[in-house]
Simulated scan of single mutants.
Amino acid sequence: MHVVSRRKLKNHILEKEDELSKLNKDIVDLSECKHLQQEQMSRIKELEKEVMEMRAKHSESLQSIKAHFLHEKVHNEKQSRQRVQALAVEASREASRCLVEHTHSIELENRQLRQELLHLIRQTQVLHAHQGELEEQRQQLLRERQYVEDLKRLRAQGHFHAQPPGGGTHT
């Protein structure tokens, strides 16, 4: 029994040594893993640091862009106000120029209308004078016609045998 027990014990020791060898190998593997894990942790810390730096740079960049944008916005608003003011001044000048032009054209038109009115007044005066003359001639002609009719009537009645004015004889 001793022999069997020795063999068992030897086998058992061999098994334990084999296990120990596997454990040692696992420990070496684990130490490599631990070393790899430490490298990865170190790399993770480096990456986290880079991420923090990139975030800081990104934040600074955003702040710079915002500041630049606000500066551009203020600049553009100032330019827009200046352009609007310049356009208002130009529009005011143009309105004044147009008003002066319009006033001048109205003055010219008024002058022409005044001349035309004076001409028409003169024509009206001439026509009134001519109308007066014509009315006077008409009255004269009516008187003469009445006179001629009166003469005819008187001759027809035989009462008038006098000589007509002018010294001639009347038949």
Rank of each mutant, 00 (worst) to 15 (best):
Q40V: 13
Q157M: 10
N76C: 11
I65Q: 15
D29G: 06
H170I: 15
R138W: 03
R143V: 06
E53A: 10
I121Q: 12
H159G: 00
E39P: 01
V126H: 12
R114M: 10
M54P: 01
E17F: 00
H161Y: 06
V126W: 04
H58W: 12
E136F: 03
Q37C: 09
R81N: 11
K10A: 14
L30G: 00
G168R: 15
S42L: 06
S92M: 10
R138T: 07
M41I: 12
C98T: 11
R138K: 13
R81E: 11
L14D: 09
D29S: 07
Q139S: 04
K34R: 09
R55N: 14
V74Q: 15
V126G: 05
T169M: 06
R143K: 10
E15T: 02
L36K: 12
Q63A: 15
E17R: 01
I65L: 15
E46K: 15
A86H: 03
T103P: 00
V148E: 09
K152S: 04
E48T: 00
V28H: 13
S31W: 03
R7N: 11
H71Q: 12
Q85S: 03
E135P: 00
H104S: 14
L118I: 14
P164H: 07
E149P: 00
E94F: 14
M54Y: 11
C98E: 10
L14S: 13
E135A: 02
I106R: 05
V51G: 03
H2Y: 06
H128G: 07
K49A: 04
V74S: 15
S31N: 12
E136T: 13
H161F: 05
G158S: 00
E17D: 07
Q163N: 05
H12M: 15
E39D: 12
K10Q: 11
V89P: 04
E94M: 13
R145T: 04
A156T: 03
S31M: 08
E77I: 05
T171D: 08
T124N: 09
Q125D: 09
K49G: 02
G167L: 02
Q139L: 01
V126S: 12
K10N: 09
K57F: 02
Y147G: 11
S21H: 12
V84T: 13
R6Q: 12
R7K: 14
V3M: 05
E60Y: 00
E94W: 11
Q115C: 05
R111I: 11
M54Q: 14
E144F: 08
Q140Y: 02
S21Y: 08
I121S: 09
S80N: 08
C33Q: 09
H170C: 15
V148Q: 13
E17T: 02
N11D: 10
Q79E: 06
S105T: 04
V51F: 09
G166S: 02
R93K: 14
